[in-house]
Design a protein around this nucleic acid. Structure first.
Length: 159
DNA sequence: GCCAACGTTGGC
DNA sequence: GCCAACGTTGGC
């Protein structure tokens, strides 16, 4: 099993939106960056994902979701009415993939950026690098557990 | 709203 | 293949 972090603008799709969706499951579509897409293609059923709210009032990790369906062609790329329509993609050779994610947990507080920066285990984390724009980011098991332990120490979650 | 950083595009 | 221009991301 692998660990990941995915960014979302809560105005578009928040942790509450996922928790409130049918089967608490949503398609994670609209990824239009090749590096992020390549990560999506390596995701496996059951992989654990930190959900991160960006460009909002309370920036940080807000909960956990998991991969409930591994990568498949993102239907939005074929839909001319979609903001994610890609006229250069075609069914024979789909350019973009999606996964399905299922709600696992919402923390009782946001794990803020300044808290994450305190973790030496995250010193090399692309998420914390200035100018980082990657929306799908792998986490090592060590990084994953360091975040969970921080959250437990701050009474954000119970381990 | 500002602006730095980045990925992508397209002319050459 | 280079690289400037552009659009977007994302923290502040």
């Amino acid at each position: 099993m692998a660990y990941w972090l995915m960014k979302t603008e809560p105005a578009e799709c928040s942790i509450d939106d996922i928790a409130g969706a049918p089967d608490q499951t949503m398609r994670w579509d609209g990824v239009r960056n090749y590096q992020a897409r390549n990560f999506i293609r390596t995701m496996a059923l059951g992989d654990q994902i930190f959900l991160y709210h960006s460009s909002c009032a309370h920036i940080g990790i807000v909960g956990i979701v998991e991969v409930s369906k591994s990568a498949y062609p993102d239907p939005c790329q074929y839909d001319p009415s979609s903001a994610y329509f890609d006229p250069k993609s075609n069914a024979e050779n789909p350019r973009w993939d999606a996964v399905d994610v299922r709600f696992i947990d919402k923390f009782n507080a946001v794990i803020r950026l300044d808290q994450l920066r305190q973790l030496s285990a995250l010193a090399e984390q692309p998420l914390l690098r200035k100018g980082n724009r990657l929306s799908v980011i792998p986490f090592s098991a060590e990084q994953w557990h360091a975040v969970l332990q921080l959250a437990a120490a701050e009474n954000i979650i119970r381990l």
